[in-house]
Design a protein around this nucleic acid. Structure first.
Length: 274
DNA sequence: AACGCGCCCTGTCCGC
DNA sequence: TGCGGACAGGGCGCGT
């Protein structure tokens, strides 16, 4: 589910609420969401007494920063949610996997129906190593059309698949890849290295536009995504092709098509996208 | 070595 | 109403 805009929305919510909070206790109901090698006991021991110093985002990951350089890296998978216990909708959570209890009586709740999510705890060096594995932030100045163009020269993969690889660009998932390709007039099936320069310029710009617009709408809720208050995002109303197969294109009226690439749906307008 | 594929798991929806 | 199948925002490990 959650891609960059959804992670960013959660991060902004948490940033207003949890810095200064001190962990008193950690409870782990579903240990399978912990990163390989991280035990519930180790998580509790290392977080107890730690104070939240900040909240940040890297790609699709929500990063809760603690004193002593410790970071809890949360990848939400498909159905992960991070909700604070004082939110009125916290009671709606049905699959709480991990709870970080705070001294002020609140808790940071990690909920995940399918448990594809991943919680990892890293020190300064461990975080640097993980950070280095992720690609460029698409909303940063470093994400230029030149970079997108040069990175894509060697790949024969369909551009939609190519965009989903977090080692290249961090934070783009299926919804925003599909929406940006529509806006840029590029079919999801196009081989990455066949994109012309003007197309990489359009794709870079439209990726940034759609990500920013979605952040402004607090993300896309198809069914599971919730912000840190447990509220859905509104950007689903602004999706132009994602999940609209058989409906008329908003630009030209041609019926939107669905194709499967690497076992994941792609949507496009056969007339607007070349 | 860079790909595509199957799989992890639960919930929901659709056709019969 | 029940049941089986398809499908879902992600990402890992595997084989080629």
């Amino acid at each position: 589910m959650p891609e960059l805009p959804e992670a960013e929305t959660i991060v902004r919510d948490l940033r207003a609420r949890i810095p200064g909070g001190t962990v008193t206790r950690v409870s782990v109901a579903r240990p399978d969401v912990l990163h390989t090698g991280l035990t519930a006991a180790a998580l509790g021991r290392r977080l107890r007494g730690r104070t939240v110093t900040g909240v940040s985002r890297r790609g699709k990951n929500v990063v809760i920063e603690f004193d002593a350089g410790l970071r809890l890296i949360i990848n939400l998978g498909m159905t992960g949610r991070v909700v604070t216990s004082d939110a009125s909708r916290a009671g709606e959570l049905r699959h709480i996997a991990v709870s970080l209890h705070l001294r002020d009586g609140r808790a940071i709740l990690y909920d995940d129906a399918r448990r594809f999510g991943d919680l990892d705890l890293r020190d300064e060096a461990g975080w640097s190593a993980r950070d280095a594995e992720l690609g460029v932030e698409p909303l940063s100045d470093a994400f230029t059309a030149d970079l997108l163009h040069s990175l894509s020269r060697m790949s024969t993969s369909p551009i939609r698949n190519w965009l989903l690889d977090q080692k290249r660009i961090a934070g783009v998932g299926n919804i925003y890849a599909i929406e940006a390709l529509f806006r840029a007039g590029i079919r999801p099936t196009r081989r990455a290295r066949t994109l012309r320069r003007r197309e990489t310029i359009a794709l870079r710009d439209e990726l940034r536009n759609v990500l920013r617009e979605s952040i402004n709408s607090r993300g896309t809720t198809i069914s599971d995504y919730r912000d840190a208050s447990g509220e859905p995002g509104a950007f689903v109303r602004s999706l132009r092709v994602y999940d609209r197969q058989g409906e008329p294109c908003i630009e030209c009226g041609t019926l939107i098509k669905r194709v499967v690439l690497s076992n994941r749906s792609a949507f496009y307008c056969p007339s607007c996208q070349k």
